[in-house]
Amino acid sequence: MQLIACPWCGPREEVEFHYGGQAHVPYPDSPAELSDEEWAHYVFFRDNPKGRFAERWNHSAGCRRWFNAIRDTATYRFERVYRLDDPKPGVTELARSREEGTAP
C-alpha cells in the first residue's frame, strides 16, 4: 500500500484514492465530426505502457479533487503529482527533479 501525495492534501494512504486511468485524453471538441474509429479510440482505447505513465487520480476519500501523476507502472513509484491545470511534465524536467530529489 503506497503513500500518494495529493497535491492539495499531501501524502495520504492509497485507500483514499481512486484511479482514473490515462491522463491528457481530452474529450473531443466535436464528437459528431469524428469517424467511428476515432470515436472508439476516445471511448475505449488507452495507453498501457510498462514504465512511466501519465495518469489521473482522484483523492476520493479526502478532498475529492482530481489530479495527474507520473507513475512508473513497473515499480509503481510516483515520480510526480501535478494539478490538472499544470502542463504534463517533460522527460527532461522529470529527470531534473529526480536528481534534485524533489520528486515525491
Binding site: Y27, R56, L84, D85
Partner: peptide
C-alpha cells in the same frame, strides 16, 4: 456525484 465531479474537474474546469 463522482461522474459529475469528474467531468467538471477534468474536462470543463
Amino acid at each position: 456525484l463522482d461522474w459529475m465531479e469528474e467531468w467538471v474537474q477534468t474536462e470543463w474546469p
